[in-house]
Write a protein that binds this DNA or RNA. Structure first.
Lengths: 215, 215
DNA sequence: GTCTATAGCTGGATAGAC
DNA sequence: GTCTATCCAGCTATAGAC
């Protein structure tokens, strides 16, 4: 309904931006369905009606917020994937593909806003509501297919089905990591309890690369 | 509040069982928060008050349902993990551990009830509400730690932190697989679109085993 | 553009008849 | 034990004053 600043700034100036920032924080803290529009507007210091005026509905707030945050990540991923350099055998290097695919999302974990978005994104991957998974799909489908194509080139002997299974496992590991920053394995308390995005990236790339190369 | 039959049968006889079965189906289809107690009781063909009489609250219905379904899986996992045979070097075999850990959960995907539970379980892993993650934790903590101990024995050279990271990735792949039976990768339509639990198990074991063995 | 006020629902829970 | 009837809190959304 309303054009919102391309980049949300930390100190929100206008009413729409304040609403989006409040929504992002609350959605990530407590989940989407558990947060009411009233809470969002209260946290933003504006009136309930303002959200309806600027966005039209609670779902529209979510969608606007999502695409606003997802776009830069998808763009960066696309850029990195398109810059991949083949090795001397003419094929892209598996590890390079994984880094290009994973880095934009995982490094977002390093900032408070990015962490909030990541948790929201991870949770949306498990949503039943079509409209929400559709937002994810719309934002990231293109780059997922780019990555799959590169992976197929890097691993020419891998059957297509197996490649898809392994890409699926990669997504699971990625999403699970994005869902719980700061508490890797709440199950076992002696685990890793701070998330350094660089460490997460390095560990996941190493793990997945070996997995993709399995016979 | 009320003792429910240890094993839910397909043709539900009593009122509590009918409520649990309806809840299971609806929770898995649409998510927990999106389903009202009224819908559950309507689907079960009983009155709203019946659910409160038998369970006390909607949350209690969920908890009862969860522990009822989780227990057999955890028990089976524990049994399989305790039966692991060491190889000639005296260590458990990585693949055997993975199978023991994953099989009870993944093979549940083969039955309609099991599939419904798996999707509910996967979604609960991403919940913010403490009480729900606590149910997961309570049901599966013990066997997760058993698996971690066996993994440490099978991979004596792997630093503890790395082991935990990789176990975390394993959980992510497992949960992601359990969350979306029948549509591995909705992102790419030419992917795998039916889930044979045995195939999922075999693929995940191969992928993860290679990942755990990465240097 | 931003507010107050309220309409119109839907939710969980319960009291009390049977 | 199982119903009907109802309470009351909370929600989204909107109409209309300013």
């Amino acid at each position: 309904m309303v054009k919102v600043a391309e980049q949300l700034v930390d100190v929100a100036s206008g009413t729409p931006e304040r609403i989006l920032l409040a929504a992002e924080r609350l959605f990530s803290e407590r989940g989407i369905d558990a947060v009411s529009l009233r809470e969002i507007t209260a946290a933003a210091g504006v009136n309930t009606a303002a959200a309806h005026y600027h966005f039209g509905s609670k779902e529209a707030v979510l969608q606007e917020l999502f695409s606003l945050r997802a776009q830069p990540i998808a763009d960066r991923r696309e850029q990195l994937l398109s810059e991949l350099k083949p090795d001397k055998s003419g094929r892209p290097v598996l590890e390079d593909i994984l880094v290009a695919f994973l880095r934009p999302g995982l490094e977002a974990l390093g900032t408070p806003d990015g962490m909030a978005f990541s948790m929201m994104r991870a949770r949306m991957a498990f949503e039943r509501e079509e409209v929400r998974r559709a937002a994810l799909s719309k934002a990231f489908n293109r780059t997922s297919e780019m990555a799959l194509k590169s992976l197929a080139k890097a691993l020419p002997d891998l059957p297509n089905q197996t490649l898809h299974w392994r890409f699926h496992f990669l997504l699971g590991s990625m999403v699970y990591t994005m869902a719980m920053p700061g508490r890797i394995e709440s199950i076992t308390h002696d685990g890793i309890d701070t998330v350094d995005p660089e460490a997460a990236l390095a560990e996941l790339v190493r793990f997945a690369a070996a997995g993709f190369r399995a016979p």
